[in-house]
């Protein structure tokens, strides 16, 4: 059970990393980051079957922080959209050099 959940979460995490590295839409990038966080949650839950509740407590912290992160992140994406009328990172290039 442990091996399967670890393998599954590693696969999810890798999909998230590949998504962040290849996609260019800010919202999709953010979704990929959330996927990575949830993959980590799965790892914690998997390990807490062996070690007890500590990992599950960590999962609650991660979920709370991820919610706060979504609030701040979406606000920043909206602030940028008001200036550029796009959330595509390809078109966002004021800062260079």
């Amino acid at each position: 059970m442990l091996a399967e959940s670890l393998f599954f979460s590693a696969v999810l995490f890798t999909i998230g990393v590949i998504g962040v590295l290849t996609r260019r839409n800010a919202i999709i990038l953010f979704m990929c980051v959330e996927l990575m966080l949830n993959a980590v949650n799965l790892t914690f839950v998997g390990f807490s079957r062996v070690y007890g509740a500590g990992g599950q407590v960590f999962v609650f912290l991660v979920m709370t922080v991820a919610a706060a992160e979504a609030a701040v992140g979406l606000a920043i994406i909206i602030a940028l959209f008001r200036h550029r009328h796009t959330v595509d990172l390809q078109n966002i290039n004021l800062l260079k050099g």
Partner: peptide, 26 residues
Amino acid sequence: AEGALKYFLLGAFATAFLLYGMALVY
């Protein structure tokens, strides 16, 4: 706004790595 978005996306990406590291150490 552009700087904030870059900081946010890369910071959140880094946090995920940090957390995965913590999970494996645990």
